[in-house]
């Protein structure tokens, strides 16, 4: 099992009973990369409004993913291999002003 700290912001926390952070323990065989983690979140953590998180089988546009406060594009994006204790953030971009 891998222990991860998940963080949600920019309104996405609404999908997780308004919890902005939560610790999860995920099976390391089936949840190896962030891509696997997104599927894990979709199937086990989200109960309604999946369209706020996933569209066309992938993370919906407008969500910034961070690995330990670094843009996932700088660390292999979907293929990033999760490590024990990683902080993975999903931040929805805001448009209001």
């Amino acid at each position: 099992m891998t222990t991860l700290e998940l963080q949600f912001g920019g309104g996405l926390e609404a999908l997780f009973s308004h919890k902005k952070q939560m610790e999860v323990r995920v099976p390391d065989e089936s949840v190896r990369t962030i891509k696997d983690l997104i599927e894990y979140i979709r199937t086990t953590l989200i109960r309604e409004r999946h369209d706020m998180f996933i569209s066309q089988g992938t993370l919906r546009p407008g969500i910034l993913v961070l690995v330990n406060d670094v843009d996932w594009e700088l660390v292999d994006a979907r293929e990033y291999v999760l490590k024990e204790g990683d902080h993975i953030s999903f931040i929805s971009t805001l448009h209001g002003g």
Partner: peptide
């Protein structure tokens, strides 16, 4: 560069 595609409009909040 950061957001190549717009979010679904149902996910966009306004003030």
């Amino acid at each position: 560069c950061i957001f190549p595609k717009p979010p679904p409009s149902s996910c966009v909040g306004s003030c």
